[in-house]
């Protein structure tokens, strides 16, 4: 019954759940094998526990209604019962059996998800978490992207899952995109892995779920699942060095003289900082500040002017520049497609 209720409430209506009542990060709307395995296990468990709940709840409710002291009671004490070994045995053995069943089912799912092997065609991405943004390295393709993860669709007949090697550059973080998989932490000097094989194209949301400091709340995640062709196109575009437009030369010079390059990389220029997100293809992204605000020219200008206005606690300092310089840097950034 629980399964029916939940799948009615979630699966068909909100498979494409961006605007659904239950939102885009519902764990009961899985779209990838690990999330599916967890979903099925959780439904089984909810059914078992639902049955336990109904039985014990009814017994308790019955007892407190049936055995209440009546108005016309003679105030004598009820018969004293001190215990019963048979009953103790019964309510020990039954839970033991339930625990055995639940444990075996669980162990199976743990093994299936955690010990999965990589099929040929696996996409490898190294995820490096930073306060408070995400770095995605694609070693097979030789480029680095930031904050918005792109992965290809994994078709059942030809699975191309994405394996994520999880690392942290500073403190503990956690990778959690509920519709694709459970969360796994990113811990300094403690590499972890997880995998996803999304079955549908679209945008999947999530966010850091291990407290990592002031702006833990706005360390958002966006996973773009694309068809293989779209993904290849995206990879090809990302592999190119940054566009170089002489019209914004003053902005690109300021990028260096105002020390932006100390933290940011723009491939094809001398900017090779690794503290902040790679900006080579900044304008290919939909958001800035790891999902904090949509990437529009106005927001970008405001972000460069004072990142804290969108994301207080962001480690990017507000640069000491004039309004005119701000316009020039923004104009330059807008050309990084």
């Amino acid at each position: 019954m629980v399964a029916a209720l939940l799948s009615w409430a979630t699966l068909p209506t909100f498979a494409d759940a961006r605007d659904g009542f239950f939102g885009p990060t519902n764990i009961f709307a899985p779209d990838s094998t690990p999330a599916h395995s967890i979903f099925r296990l959780s439904i089984f468990e909810l059914e078992v526990e639902g049955a336990i709940f109904v039985v014990v709840f009814s017994l308790l409710a019955y007892a407190i209604t049936k055995f209440r002291q009546r108005k016309n009671d003679d105030d004598s004490e009820p018969p004293q019962v001190y215990g019963s070994n048979q009953m103790e045995l019964a309510w020990t053995v039954l839970p033991v059996l339930i625990v055995v069943v639940l444990f075996l089912t669980t162990a199976q799912v743990i093994h299936r998800v955690q010990d999965a092997r990589r099929p040929p065609g696996t996409i490898e991405v190294t995820v490096v978490a930073h306060q408070f943004w995400w770095e995605f390295r694609y070693p097979q393709y030789g480029f680095v992207a930031s904050n918005e993860l792109h992965v290809p669709l994994s078709a059942p007949q030809l699975p191309t899952p994405t394996f994520l090697a999880l690392q942290s550059a500073d403190v503990d973080h956690s990778f959690w995109v509920p519709r694709l998989a459970g969360k796994t932490d990113l811990i300094p000097n403690h590499p972890n892995t997880m995998w996803i094989d999304p079955q549908e194209t679209g945008l999947f949301l999530g966010q850091c779920s291990q407290y990592c400091g002031v702006q833990h709340a706005k360390m958002l995640q966006r996973v773009y699942v694309q068809s293989r062709e779209e993904f290849n196109k995206w990879v090809h575009a990302q592999q190119q060095p940054a566009a170089s437009d002489p019209a914004v030369a003053s902005g690109s010079a300021l990028f260096i003289t105002k020390a932006c390059f100390a933290c940011h990389t723009v491939r094809g220029t001398i900017a090779a900082g690794i503290v902040g997100p790679d900006l080579t293809h900044l304008m290919s992204r939909d958001t800035i500040g790891s999902g904090a605000v949509p990437l529009t020219p106005e927001n970008l200008r405001q972000w460069v002017h004072n990142p804290a206005s969108f994301k207080p606690g962001s480690l990017m300092p507000a640069p000491d520049i004039t309004e005119q310089e701000l316009d020039q840097i923004t104009a330059y950034l807008l050309t990084l497609r």
Binding site: S42, E45, E49, I110, G182, T184, S209, Q210
Partner: peptide, 16 residues
């Protein structure tokens, strides 16, 4: 609590 004890379920529920 038993839901949270179920490691895979906990991968979703933990820290939420």
């Amino acid at each position: 609590g038993i839901m949270l004890a179920t490691a895979p379920f906990d991968w979703q529920l933990s820290a939420s």
